[in-house]
Amino acid sequence: MTSTLKGITLKGSAELVAEFFSFGINSILYQRGIYPPETFTRVTQYDMSLQLTTDVKLKNYLTNVVSQLKEWLFECTVQKLVLVITCLETNEVLERWQFDIECDKSAKESSAPREKSIKTIQDEIRSVIRQITATVTFLPLLESACSFDLLVYTDKDLVVPDRWEESGPQIISQSEEVRLRSFTTSIHKVNSMVAYKKTDSV
């Protein structure tokens, strides 16, 4: 963490947001049962205990994605990060966890740190993750085997790096949306929301 107590820089903000995504994705995967709970281990972050995967392949994938994401956050070219949960049997998109990222592009020019303490940012992040954890109460149960994918909405002029490719938006047909809390580092603002497929029974 490069930012000091004085304030927060673009780089520090990018790292904070990327870290939030890493933990947020892990906790969604744990909460939604995409990976078996025994493959998760408990760690303490943001003054709360969180679940972190121990699955080597998943870890690799997440580090790849998050490091790339950090770069883009630093360049302020990322608009959204979406975690898509797909049913493997029917190839149907069941859930979309969308994190809208609003970048303050003026921070790229002026390197002056913003005045917001990491403590307050982390408090905001904690409340977001708490809310993610609480969503299990109203989201429909994932009954079939599911897998997830991470989509990144970026600016059009961005050069697609190696090992990345373009994808569709994976929109859910007949979805219900719930807005969650947001947090801001004063450079990046992250609005979170979840959309899920309407079930007929409910």
């Binding site: 989509l151 059009k156 090992r163 959309a195």
Partner: peptide, 24 residues
């Protein structure tokens, strides 16, 4: 909210070897 985007300004990227495609 549903995840639509402006194709003029935005592109959607994902990692080639993502868990879904691997699983598929």
């Amino acid at each position: 909210l549903q995840g639509d985007y402006d194709p003029v300004k935005t592109q959607v990227l994902h990692f080639k070897m993502n868990p879904t495609s691997v699983a598929k």
